[in-house]
């Protein structure tokens, strides 16, 4: 118990003094996670619109695969991305392994199915005739898609929150494709794993608290938008 309190006390010291290394890891984590979420949003929303609004043979199979992908284990993603980026892998020529780009790539692979799956569900909940109603009000096709997204904005924000939550908390893929290199690819989760392994509980607790605070802050902002938008 004393270990815990001591750890928490030291953690607050690190935070109070704005330890440069902790601060660096935090900002890097935020940057990588937000970029990966943004990329997943673009890909996931596009795929979600396509799956929700078009009919093609095998559509149900694709939706099932996407839904399975929502629970994709990060270590599996890490393994495959590592193999793709490996020196003689298909994308080896880009020399991305153990760079921030590799982490963004792996996290995008993790979050895209999550955002796609929730987007499909959100868009399918809209009344089927709404599309026709929008077109009959004089909308072009892109305007129609935009208005549908706007109508589904509340559940779509939930998709963004789930995607963000999925990538900021994962450790396996970031560790495997990033390598936890100090000052280059070290994120909050990989650093926490490492510090815990070394017995530096104070640092690990500090990192964990930051991770929780970040997750809370981002979700609080999105929840605020979502609830403010909800008509009373």
């Amino acid at each position: 118990m004393e270990l815990l309190w001591e750890g928490i006390r030291k953690a607050f010291d690190l935070l109070r003094t704005l330890d440069p290394e902790v601060l660096g890891i935090t900002l890097f984590t935020l940057k990588v996670t937000l970029l990966a979420t943004l990329a997943s949003l673009v890909l996931g929303l596009g795929a979600g619109l396509a799956l929700a609004l078009t009919q093609f043979p095998g559509r149900r199979v694709v939706i099932s695969l996407v839904n399975t992908g929502m629970g994709l284990p990060p270590v599996v993603v890490g393994l495959f991305v590592t193999m793709f980026l490996w020196r003689n892998g298909p994308l080896g020529g880009f020399e991305l392994l153990y760079t921030p780009s590799a982490i963004i790539l792996a996290q995008t692979v993790i979050a895209t199915p999550i955002i796609t799956g929730i987007s499909v569900a959100a868009l399918q909940q809209l009344p089927p005739d709404l599309r026709l109603q929008i077109l009959s009000l004089g909308a072009t096709r892109p305007q129609m898609l935009w208005l549908l997204v706007r109508e589904a904005r509340l559940p779509l924000l939930a998709a963004v929150m789930a995607g963000f939550g999925g990538v900021i908390s994962e450790v396996g893929a970031s560790l495997m494709v990033g390598g936890n290199i100090k000052g280059s690819t070290r994120v909050l989760t990989t650093a926490t794993v490492m510090e815990t392994g070394k017995g530096n509980f104070d640092v690990a607790i500090a990192l964990s608290l930051i991770l929780l605070a970040l997750t809370f802050a981002v979700n609080a902002v999105l929840t605020h938008i979502q609830q403010r938008e909800r008509p009373r």
Partner: peptide
């Protein structure tokens, strides 16, 4: 031309914004 369906299919916005929606698209 335009169409009104059996369900009102209003946008999740104010009545005014709904009335304006088609005019904006036009």
């Amino acid at each position: 031309v335009t169409m009104v369906f059996q369900a009102p299919l209003l946008f999740d916005a104010t009545v005014r914004a709904n009335l304006e929606s088609g005019l904006k698209l036009h």
